[in-house]
């Protein structure tokens, strides 16, 4: 029987994979993908718990992911534009090589 804690564990694992990717990947686009994983981990939580709560407040849990998907898309659009502008200036999308600003 798959219970609510299975979903919670799945989302936690997904979130940690995303966090690991953000911290270790050097390619800007790969970092962006890892961040999307973290967003989706939260979405799994919302959907799973809105099913679990059924009666009272389920609707906010179902509506939340829809908004999150839209926000993630707009964030990706802006992020890719910024990465593109960095590529035009420095011919790299590597986060490590963007190191002009250092104290």
């Amino acid at each position: 029987m798959i219970g609510i804690f299975h979903y919670l564990a799945l989302s936690a694992v997904l979130f940690c994979i995303g966090l690991y990717g953000v911290l270790t990947r050097r390619n800007g686009i790969a970092v962006l993908m890892s961040i999307e994983l973290m967003f989706n981990a939260a979405n799994i939580n919302f959907v799973a718990f809105s099913y679990y709560f059924k009666g009272i407040h389920f609707i906010s849990g179902e509506v939340f992911p829809l908004f999150v998907i839209a926000v993630a898309a707009s964030e990706a659009a802006v992020g890719l534009a910024i990465i593109l502008s960095l590529y035009r200036n420095k011919k790299t999308v590597n986060v490590d090589e963007a190191n002009q600003l250092r104290g």
Partner: peptide
């Protein structure tokens, strides 16, 4: 056109 500005944007974005 300023690579410092792009870099700052990228860092703030991430």
């Amino acid at each position: 056109k300023d690579s410092k500005s792009s870099e700052s944007g990228l860092k703030y974005f991430l």
